[in-house]
């Protein structure tokens, strides 16, 4: 058995505005899927229909095969979600808020206690477990919300821009939590407009814009697709590289279409041919004894696909 999320012709209109247009998406298995798109693309609308916060104009959302509209309790039973940075009753403590979530989910008291300690520790809120939520910052509340989504150890986790409102350290911690969440038999569906976040934690990506799904594929395939173009690779060396060495030993390498200098020890090379070509360039650079320190393909593959698809949608 594997977790699944499915949208069948999911459509939502607000008057004459179509927020989501006939979304067909079938995600099965244990993976982390990034749901990308610019503001107003329809990401949150989709997630809200998957949690029955808003209702489809037509179509159907299913979690593990259960229709969210027809059988929301069964559909959401194995799903933990975080939609739009919820507020928690201010007089409750995180421990009490999680007790409430656990009790509503039918968890036993010992399970609730043990899982509460675990998830509060995971989100680094254990020290505030018994303080009132009303005194927390937005970031602290978001951590408690993440803990609430994870309390029942759900098979399906839906996160709507989970790092929203967090400082850079908090964002990094949330990404770390999501990476740790990836395990056997868990499907994570995460909306975001932060490409680096998606690249960092996701295995697959679905891109929406103007309420339409533009593509859904693995990140590896997205990178390979871009391989037909050029990938920017950041090169660092332990010692300065002369212009002569650049001209004779780097620019001429197969697959390299151009080199620019960042500083005496750092260059940016444009490499065509995808991951295979990058691998060969790397081998030859090492063999050239120029003192290669790092070879970092720019994580712009998704960004370039994103920009291309979005701009095509605009035209």
């Amino acid at each position: 058995m594997s977790p699944s999320l499915e949208a069948r012709g999911l459509t939502r209109r607000f008057g004459s505005f179509t927020a989501l247009d006939n979304l067909n998406l079938n995600i099965q298995g244990s993976k982390c899927v990034g749901f990308l798109g610019p503001n107003g693309a329809g990401k949150t609308t989709t997630l809200k229909m998957f949690t029955d916060l808003i209702f489809p104009t037509s179509g159907e959302a299913l979690i593990n095969g259960h229709s969210v509209r027809a059988d929301r309790k069964r559909a959401l039973a194995s799903c933990g979600d975080l939609i739009e940075s919820p507020e928690i009753y201010p007089s409750l403590t995180p421990r009490e808020a999680l007790e409430l979530v656990g009790a509503v989910r039918g968890m036993s008291a010992p399970d609730i206690r043990s899982r509460t300690d675990t998830v509060l520790h995971e989100v680094k809120m254990a020290d505030w477990a018994d303080s009132k939520v009303g005194r927390f910052s937005k970031g602290m509340k978001q951590r408690v919300n993440i803990a609430a989504a994870l309390l029942s150890d759900p098979e399906v986790v839906m996160l709507d821009e989970p790092s929203t409102g967090l400082d850079p350290r908090g964002m990094a911690e949330v990404r770390s939590i999501i990476r740790e969440l990836k395990r056997e038999n868990r499907l994570i569906f995460m909306s975001s407009h932060i490409l680096s976040e998606v690249i960092d934690v996701c295995d697959e990506v679905a891109l929406v814009d103007h309420g339409k799904l533009l593509f859904y594929d693995t990140l590896a395939n997205v990178n390979a697709r871009l391989g037909k173009g050029a990938t920017s690779v950041d090169l660092a060396f332990v010692r300065p590289v002369s212009d002569a060495d650049v001209a004779s030993r780097i620019v001429n390498l197969p697959g390299v279409t151009g080199v620019s200098r960042v500083d005496p020890q750092r260059l940016t090379a444009m490499v065509t041919g995808g991951p295979e070509a990058q691998s060969q360039v790397l081998e030859q650079l090492v063999a050239s004894k120029l003192g290669l320190l790092s070879f970092q393909p720019s994580r712009s593959a998704l960004e370039e696909v994103y920009m291309r698809e979005i701009s095509q949608g605009d035209s």
């Binding site: 916060l53 959401l76 739009e84 507020e87 509503v104």
Partner: peptide, 11 residues
């Protein structure tokens, strides 16, 4: 927005 905390639960 307290509703978002409750309404995503199986309730």
């Amino acid at each position: 927005k307290t509703g978002y905390f409750l309404m995503g639960l199986p309730v």
